[in-house]
Design a protein around this nucleic acid. Structure first.
Lengths: 337, 337
DNA sequence: TTACGGATTGCACGCAAGTGCAACTCGATG
DNA sequence: CATCGAGTTGCACTTGCGTGCAATCCGTAA
């Protein structure tokens, strides 16, 4: 129940002594308005505190300027960093970000997309889960653009941004071997997303090629606690691994903490560890973790660029898929070869 | 340039063989529609993939359902945790969150609020910076609600949610004295926000009362790096402090890391540390930090409750201010007294 | 002076919804 | 059979804005 309403173009027009069209044109770049009229309108608008109603404008133009971000695990370092970059770049591109959190409840990605549709978002960027095919179709049919980040879906239409997870896994295996590790392991979560599995497969493949077997253990989410549990399981094995690739930096942090404080192991002397994401904590001296940097800025740039360009439907499907390189950040959790 | 448009109520009406009003009524709770009509409308809507246009609905109702979140330092653990809780609770209350990042550029809180006004947000929640008085007035005049979290402003109108920072500072001083600390220090950032300064003042006041002086040092932002620098400065003093209250957990993490890895100090034996926020990292075994928990959930609950209730303008000004208690989380960075 | 052309302006319509009001249906009651 | 009343339905108007079209203004050239 707003006690007073927002001021409308009509009121500004009356105060400025011009027609409502003139007001509209003043706030529409490229429209034909005389300098004098423009000035009077701007004065009146300023005096009344007028701001164009983007709801109505979106209605007319059939283009709301809203981009919907569909995210889970917002409070996670990597996610929040990506979110930060996305929002900044979206704002610079003149878009506004609408936020849908899918943390609770199932099928919520679909419901999130429905929210986006209801508000006639120009596009949706999905950082979590995978939408149902029917919803995806609906979005595309409605003229909504879709960006999937690290989702690795095979549906045509959306822009898909992924990393070279598989190759990264290989590079870690090589580094471990150079460091003289004899028993390799991969610590993964049960999430089983394509990114995580890609790292796992790449690591195993490269290790096998180098003549080493890999112990794989999967547990829980991709968080710190899961890392501790994984350490518990792996470091009590008869043949204790001495080179562990954790699918995620958070896993690695938990793993290292348990390894040091519970098992009294020294890193990297007795145990080499690698992570993935390059969250801020990885650079803290308590961890000093060798890891792969998510190209957060590049991801955001690609996404926003594609959205701003209008991403023509008729361009070749290859143009809808981007693979970015995760840079290896050398720190102190792997011995130098 | 959407190649195809969203489907409108008109089209649904035609397909269902009813008037457009009937469609409108079907999606308006409490409106008068016969069961038969309702069914036919719902079928047609389902078949066509119809979703009510919230832009148009907002236009009519003069109530968009949008709540604007104005935030800086999104990638910070505490902020992202608060953000997470806010978005979840807003969604549960049937609102949708619009996100404005004020990280770059000055005066951006004002510009952010203008965004909120343009999209006719029902309310704005401000987690960073302080809006100009004129903008605040404009928001309130337009019927927009305003929530300031940890901002401690004195303007009438907005809901203000704050913590008992001053008292918390006092409790830390007491704990340090019990632990036998002789030389106290407060590590702060240069930000100088009311919350940070409140903790500082409370700490100093209590320490003075207990007969101890406090060394205060301020530097940089509230991040990890600033904590390291502060440690550098404080731990090289002739009279080295043995009880340090860091204004923020991130500061504390940086401080502890430097204290241990650069100065070889043992915590809590040689140095007691306390923080504030209870970010996830505080509970990690590398830090095991005694700190105050931000009542994130309570903050969000208060904010959303007030927004949902419509927060009458005519209620007493006292009702516009909430003070919540930060709970002390005992871990291992302070010796037991 | 008149005609021409470019720039401005206003009218009216459309976007996609919600809603008051009047007309309508239909069953029950007098 | 006429009347009443509750429950539905559709018309028409409203919200704030953009824009095509026609009318108007003004300066300049014939």
């Amino acid at each position: 129940m707003p006690s007073k309403l927002f001021v409308s173009a009509q009121e500004v027009a009356e105060r400025a002594g011009v027609s409502r069209s003139a007001v509209s044109r003043t706030f529409t770049p490229g429209a034909s308005v005389s300098a004098d009229t423009r000035r009077r309108v701007l004065e009146a608008a300023e005096a009344l505190g007028y701001h164009v109603n983007h709801l109505a404008r979106g209605l007319m133009r059939n283009e709301s300027g809203i981009v919907c971000l569909i995210v889970s695990d917002v409070a996670t370092p990597y996610r929040s960093a990506l979110l930060r970059e996305l929002t900044i770049q979206l704002q610079n591109a003149g878009k506004v970000a609408m936020f849908v959190n899918t943390d609770r409840s199932d099928g919520s990605v679909d419901r999130a997309l429905q929210q986006a549709i209801r508000y006639r978002a120009d596009a949706s960027i999905i950082l979590s889960g995978l939408p149902d095919k029917s919803i995806t179709q609906l979005c595309l049919r409605s003229g909504q653009r879709l960006v999937l980040i690290n989702r690795d879906d095979d549906q045509p239409g959306p822009l898909k941004i992924n990393l070279d997870d598989y190759e990264s896994g290989g590079r870690v295996a090589t580094a471990f071997v150079r460091a003289g590790c004899k028993t390799l392991a991969f610590a993964n979560s049960e999430a089983g997303t394509p990114s995580l599995m890609g790292r796992e497969r790449g690591f195993i493949a490269a290790a096998t090629k180098l003549g080493l077997e890999v112990v794989v253990e999967r547990y829980g989410s991709t968080g710190y606690e899961a890392g501790r549990v994984l350490a518990q399981r792996m470091l009590t094995r008869a043949e204790r691994p001495d080179g562990v690739f954790c699918a995620t930096d958070l896993l690695a942090c938990g793993f290292m903490d348990a390894a040091r404080h519970q098992f009294g192991l020294s890193i990297p002397d007795q145990l080499c560890v690698a992570g993935f994401d390059d969250i801020e904590q990885a650079s803290w001296s308590s961890f000093n973790l060798t890891t792969f940097a998510q190209p957060v800025m590049a991801i955001a740039t690609q996404a926003v660029k594609w959205l701003a360009s209008g991403g023509h439907e008729d361009e070749p499907e290859e143009a809808h898929s981007v693979r970015l390189k995760a840079e290896l950040i050398w720190r102190g959790s792997i011995r130098k070869g």
